[in-house]
Amino acid sequence: MADLSVNICGVDFKNPIIPASGVFGYGREYEELFPLNKLGGIATKGTTRHQRTGNIAPRIAETPAGMLNSVGLQNPGIDHFVEVDLPYLMTKDVVVLANIAGSTPEECAETAAKLEGTDAHMIELNISCPNVKQGGAAFGTSCEMAAEVTKIVRAATTKPLVVKLSPNVTNIAEIAKAVESAGADAVSLINTLLGMRIDINTGRPILHNNMGGLSGPAIFPVAVRMVYQVANAVKIPVIGMGGVSSGKDAIELMMAGASAVQVGAAIFTDPYAPVRIVEEMNDFLDKKGISSVRDIIGTVQLW
């Protein structure tokens, strides 16, 4: 049995696997299938200052080795999260990354401030959700905007701040450096890639929002590349994600430089995916005689 524990920004994770924000709600639906303490952490559903109703359906489209979504940040608002969902999660012996988003830097900061005095372990700031018409993509796609929102949220919270980056940029390493300078304690990447599908019988996009975020195995090589680039550009820890569906994928992303790994769309194919991935990582490490998963972080040797 290899040591799977990792430490990010002073927070101990019993293993590096975290269901990604948006696929896992606030955990209740999956607890029907497995105890949540089998997970390293949980990145909770993106939550905003006030309740959001989200986009009109269809919000989901299938794509080759992947899927598009445009849920539009439907959530009950941060007060509901703090009063109802967070207390539930805090009894589950799992690290809680409270994912927050907003339309303005001030709204993000207000939302982060609502988590002060709670037991949430970390804040994951979404500056990259491509679905929201105001803000969202705009923050994550320029160094100035990314730094500004990070700085304002940084000032509003004493908790470890993870900034979740958008891959829909020319140079993700520059964005990562900008948020690091602005006070981020870690970065997580990649969020979904902006995509579109059209129903050729009707001539209409499949998603009512027309465009949406691409996730699933199709984006995994992009995630590996971007995690590698960012991990080599910043000193803060990198949490990797994007199309991870097996223990081998998670190991690969950690070799590229990730200190922990989030699992998204794979949960829709196999609801036990995060638990299975933890087991598969352990099997790989045991087979290779590697005693700690920490020993593989960033170990890729370029040609």
């Binding site: 999956y30 269809p58 919000r59 989901i60 849920v71 829709f268 609801p271």
Partner: peptide, 17 residues
């Protein structure tokens, strides 16, 4: 019916007004 992902109420994909 609606296009659906998780099937258990977690992902909020299959919205209905």
């Amino acid at each position: 019916e609606e296009r659906m992902a998780c099937g258990i109420g977690a992902c909020l994909g299959c919205a209905c007004r």
